[in-house]
Amino acid sequence: MRADAVLGPAGDGFGAAQAAEFVEFEIGYDDVAELDRLASIHGGDRSAFLSEAIRVMGARERAVRLQMLQERIHAAIGGPRASEQVTADVRQVLKGT
Protein backbone atom coordinates (compact mmCIF):
# COMPACT_ATOMS: atom_id res chain seq x y z
CA MET A 1 0.00 0.00 0.00
CA ARG A 2 1.30 3.47 -0.86
CA ALA A 3 1.90 5.98 1.94
CA ASP A 4 -0.45 8.42 0.21
CA ALA A 5 -3.30 5.91 -0.05
CA VAL A 6 -6.54 7.04 1.50
CA LEU A 7 -8.16 4.70 3.98
CA GLY A 8 -11.22 4.80 6.16
CA PRO A 9 -14.75 3.49 5.76
CA ALA A 10 -17.44 5.94 4.77
CA GLY A 11 -19.52 7.11 7.68
CA ASP A 12 -16.98 6.11 10.30
CA GLY A 13 -17.96 9.11 12.43
CA PHE A 14 -14.55 10.71 12.17
CA GLY A 15 -15.16 13.01 9.21
CA ALA A 16 -13.03 12.85 6.08
CA ALA A 17 -10.83 9.87 5.29
CA GLN A 18 -7.24 10.24 6.40
CA ALA A 19 -4.01 9.68 4.51
CA ALA A 20 -2.30 6.53 5.72
CA GLU A 21 1.17 5.12 5.95
CA PHE A 22 1.98 1.43 5.79
CA VAL A 23 3.63 0.29 9.02
CA GLU A 24 4.94 -3.21 9.55
CA PHE A 25 5.55 -4.76 12.96
CA GLU A 26 5.59 -8.15 14.65
CA ILE A 27 3.40 -9.48 17.42
CA GLY A 28 3.63 -12.79 19.23
CA TYR A 29 1.67 -15.77 17.95
CA ASP A 30 -0.46 -15.74 21.09
CA ASP A 31 -1.39 -12.09 20.49
CA VAL A 32 -2.65 -12.61 16.94
CA ALA A 33 -5.88 -14.26 18.10
CA GLU A 34 -6.48 -11.49 20.64
CA LEU A 35 -5.77 -8.82 18.01
CA ASP A 36 -8.26 -10.46 15.66
CA ARG A 37 -10.86 -10.77 18.45
CA LEU A 38 -10.50 -7.11 19.38
CA ALA A 39 -10.41 -6.04 15.74
CA SER A 40 -13.70 -7.87 15.19
CA ILE A 41 -15.29 -5.13 17.32
CA HIS A 42 -14.39 -2.80 14.42
CA GLY A 43 -15.74 -5.06 11.70
CA GLY A 44 -12.53 -7.08 11.51
CA ASP A 45 -10.55 -4.03 10.45
CA ARG A 46 -7.19 -4.19 12.24
CA SER A 47 -6.32 -0.66 11.11
CA ALA A 48 -9.52 0.74 12.62
CA PHE A 49 -8.86 -1.13 15.84
CA LEU A 50 -5.27 0.09 16.06
CA SER A 51 -6.37 3.67 15.39
CA GLU A 52 -8.87 3.43 18.23
CA ALA A 53 -6.26 1.83 20.50
CA ILE A 54 -3.88 4.72 19.77
CA ARG A 55 -6.60 7.25 20.68
CA VAL A 56 -7.46 5.39 23.90
CA MET A 57 -3.83 4.97 24.97
CA GLY A 58 -3.13 8.64 24.20
CA ALA A 59 -6.07 9.70 26.39
CA ARG A 60 -4.89 7.38 29.14
CA GLU A 61 -1.37 8.79 29.01
CA ARG A 62 -2.70 12.37 29.16
CA ALA A 63 -4.87 11.45 32.17
CA VAL A 64 -1.83 10.03 33.98
CA ARG A 65 0.19 13.19 33.24
CA LEU A 66 -2.68 15.35 34.51
CA GLN A 67 -2.93 13.30 37.70
CA MET A 68 0.82 13.65 38.26
CA LEU A 69 0.58 17.41 37.69
CA GLN A 70 -2.31 17.67 40.13
CA GLU A 71 -0.33 15.72 42.74
CA ARG A 72 2.63 18.08 42.34
CA ILE A 73 0.36 21.12 42.66
CA HIS A 74 -1.37 19.66 45.72
CA ALA A 75 2.01 18.95 47.30
CA ALA A 76 3.10 22.54 46.63
CA ILE A 77 -0.06 24.13 48.06
CA GLY A 78 -0.59 21.75 50.97
CA GLY A 79 -3.27 19.52 49.51
CA PRO A 80 -6.33 19.74 47.29
CA ARG A 81 -8.60 22.75 47.68
CA ALA A 82 -12.38 22.93 47.61
CA SER A 83 -13.77 25.27 44.99
CA GLU A 84 -14.78 27.71 47.73
CA GLN A 85 -11.18 27.83 48.96
CA VAL A 86 -9.89 28.38 45.43
CA THR A 87 -12.35 31.28 45.00
CA ALA A 88 -11.19 32.78 48.30
CA ASP A 89 -7.53 32.35 47.31
CA VAL A 90 -8.14 34.06 43.95
CA ARG A 91 -9.95 36.96 45.63
CA GLN A 92 -7.08 37.34 48.07
CA VAL A 93 -4.54 37.44 45.25
CA LEU A 94 -6.62 39.95 43.30
CA LYS A 95 -6.84 42.20 46.35
CA GLY A 96 -3.05 42.06 46.62
CA THR A 97 -2.98 40.70 50.17
Rank of each mutant, 00 (worst) to 15 (best):
G28R: 14
E24S: 15
L69R: 10
H74M: 01
V32W: 06
M57L: 15
R91N: 15
E52Q: 04
L66H: 13
L50R: 04
M1V: 07
F25E: 03
E26P: 01
A20W: 05
A39S: 08
Q92C: 06
G11K: 12
T97R: 04
R55F: 01
A10D: 11
A88P: 03
L7F: 12
P80G: 08
G8W: 01
I77E: 06
K95G: 13
L38G: 10
I27V: 13
R60T: 14
A17K: 12
Q18K: 05
Y29S: 09
F14N: 05
V86D: 02
A10S: 14
G13C: 04
L50H: 05
E71M: 09
Q70T: 11
L38M: 09
F22Q: 10
S83Y: 09
F49S: 01
E21M: 08
S51H: 10
E24C: 13
V90N: 00
A48D: 00
D36E: 09
A10N: 10
A59K: 15
A59H: 14
A48M: 02
S83R: 08
A53L: 13
I54H: 13
Q85G: 02
G13S: 04
G15S: 15
T97I: 03
L50M: 08
M68S: 11
E21S: 14
D12L: 04
Q70G: 06
Q85W: 00
G96D: 04
M57F: 15
A19W: 02
Y29Q: 07
R2Q: 08
A33L: 10
I41R: 15
A39P: 06
A16W: 02
A53M: 08
L35S: 03
A5Y: 05
I77G: 06
D36N: 15
E61C: 12
A63N: 12
V6C: 09
M68W: 07
V56Q: 15
V56S: 13
R65P: 01
R2M: 07
D4Y: 07
D12K: 01
A76V: 05
G78A: 07
E71W: 00
V6F: 11
G13M: 05
G58I: 03
R72N: 12
G79H: 00
E61P: 04
G78C: 04
G28C: 07
V56F: 15
E24D: 12
P9A: 08
A39T: 06
D12P: 02
Q92K: 07
I73G: 06
H42V: 00
R81H: 10
K95M: 06
R81M: 13
L35G: 04
L38D: 03
F49D: 03
E21H: 12
Q92D: 11
D31T: 03
Y29K: 10
G79M: 00
A75Q: 11
D31P: 05
G8E: 01
R55Q: 11
G58L: 00
A88H: 09
D45T: 03
S51Q: 08
A17T: 10
R37M: 04
A19P: 15
F22C: 11
M1T: 11
F49P: 02
V6Q: 03
D30G: 12
Q67F: 11
S83H: 08
A59D: 14
G28I: 00
D89S: 10
P9T: 07
Q85A: 15
Y29V: 09
I54R: 13
L66M: 12
L38N: 11
D45P: 09
